[in-house]
Design a protein around this nucleic acid. Structure first.
Length: 437
DNA sequence: CAGTGTTTATTTTGGA
DNA sequence: TCCAAAATAAACACTG
């Protein structure tokens, strides 16, 4: 079975990594439980599709001062956040408690009741009443972080693992990093091809499709007006459909993190690995794909409608750099991190945090973006670092679906920025984070 | 031999 | 309806 546990590309300083894995989600839960806080602060808008990591490309992080009305609506939609999530992802898993596995079709009813935030138009459905964590019958629209967050995948035919391997192999932007000799285990890690990153940095990408999430212009301007002065932090990202602001607390944590990690210079993947920055959601295959007779129907498993894709390259560009068939939506992830679409405000620059570091996609190690060989300007590089950090942080702490309220994030396209910047728990290098949990 | 990675083929889906 | 992209399935080679 494909284990989405934290792999350990650079095992120095860590043993028994699987046992030491601390999930960011769990940490977030714990914090929530301890503080009794709810996600009324910063928020992130994202698509409901994680199959395409486009959610990351499209998310809109709104500053720490969410308009009261929006907060109220969020609370209404989310219910009690962080209040009743099971301590273990497996808790509450009916299948794990003996419920037979019978993956089935998602019912229309399961997707029918959508309650997006007014003004935020999510294209497509958003099942706010589906508890993916405990419902083994309904396939979530996401393909990663998978086994722990989505009951469906714990019991579904593991062929999806093959799909992931397929994507990693197929997409040129991922290159395999072999294990070190003394490193036990099979297989290697995956990293982002620096060339690919380079191109992204150079801004040579075009969107081929429109993002599926759009914010009502009226609301957008309202939010803009609301956030601009007070929430304009060191990482106030604005542009296009994206508005990202970091509240002061997050800024503080960010600085603390920089101080603790030495920021960008001489980034050491070994060090970073112990931090949230060292781990990205990664797919580490732990079980081979099983072969089976072709089904009468290839879609025995229920399929959630796919959201739109967001390939990065134009046809010409693809020709230029070679085939990118199956350009997997990791592209979108990269794109969001690298493209100018998430351009920074001209405010106080945020220190590059993960410059030249590896981005570990959980075991699949997304390695250092090499310094742009071209003329990518420094500011842009800095932007990338910040954004990548944000993306990484977010991936570290994917919306905890074990929480009914938070699962509604997907519906409302809103995520607490505190999750995004749950740095405190990551500062201890001995703490390993499993972004997939 | 099991796990991992690559490749090809087919199906599904959404946009034009 | 067509096409492109993504998902899925499967075969096969490689490796520890």
């Amino acid at each position: 079975m494909l284990s989405l546990s934290c792999a350990d590309p650079w095992p120095e300083g860590s043993v028994g990594l699987e046992e030491e894995v601390v999930t960011a989600a769990a940490q977030a839960e714990q914090r929530d439980a301890e503080s009794g806080s709810s996600d009324s602060g910063s928020s992130v808008s994202l698509d409901d599709s994680l199959t395409s990591l486009q959610w990351l490309q499209e998310f809109s992080i709104l500053g720490g001062n969410v308009p009261q009305r929006v907060q109220q609506q969020q609370q209404h939609l989310f219910g009690q956040l962080g209040s009743d999530a099971p301590a273990s992802p497996l808790a509450g898993d009916p299948a794990s408690m003996g419920t037979p596995l019978t993956p089935g079709k998602p019912t229309a009813a399961a997707y029918s009741r959508l309650q997006p935030l007014p003004g935020i138009v999510a294209h497509g459905h958003c099942p706010d009443d589906v508890d993916y964590k405990t419902n083994p019958r309904i396939k979530p629209p996401y393909s990663y972080w998978i086994t722990d967050n989505y009951c469906y995948y714990r019991h579904a035919d593991p062929t999806w693992q093959n799909s992931i391997r397929h994507n990693l192999s197929l997409n040129k932007c991922f290159i395999k990093v072999p294990r070190q000799k003394d490193e036990p285990g099979k297989g290697g890690f995956w990293k982002i091809d620096p060339q690919y990153a380079d191109r992204l940095l150079s801004g040579a990408y075009k969107k081929r499709r429109m993002p599926p999430v759009q914010i009502n212009p009226a609301l957008q301007s309202r939010l803009k007006a609301n956030f601009q002065p007070q929430s304009r932090g060191p990482c106030s990202l604005t542009g296009g459909q994206i508005s990202l602001c970091i509240n002061p607390e997050s800024q503080r944590l960010l600085r603390e993190f920089e101080e603790a990690t030495g920021a960008d210079q001489n980034w050491d993947p070994h060090l970073a690995e112990g931090t949230m920055l060292g781990s990205w959601p990664v797919v580490r295959g732990r079980g081979g794909h099983k072969r089976k007779q072709s089904h009468g129907s290839r879609n025995g498993a229920a399929k959630a409608p796919r959201r739109s894709s967001s390939p990065l390259l134009s046809v010409d560009e693809q020709k230029e750099i070679g085939p990118l068939k199956g350009d997997f939506d990791w592209d979108a992830l990269l794109d969001s991190a690298l493209s100018g679409e998430l351009s920074l405000d001209e405010g106080e620059p945020l220190s590059p945090i993960i410059k030249d570091e590896d981005l570990t996609v959980q075991g699949t190690h997304i390695s250092p973006m090499e310094a742009p060989t071209g003329t990518a300007d420094i500011q842009r590089s800095s932007d990338f670092d910040e954004e990548t950090f944000l993306a990484t942080a977010f991936l570290e702490s994917p919306w905890p679906e074990e929480d009914q309220g938070r699962s509604d994030f997907l519906c409302s396209s809103t995520v607490n920025l505190d999750q995004l910047f749950s740095l405190e728990d990551s500062l201890d290098p001995s703490t390993r984070i499993d972004p997939l949990l």
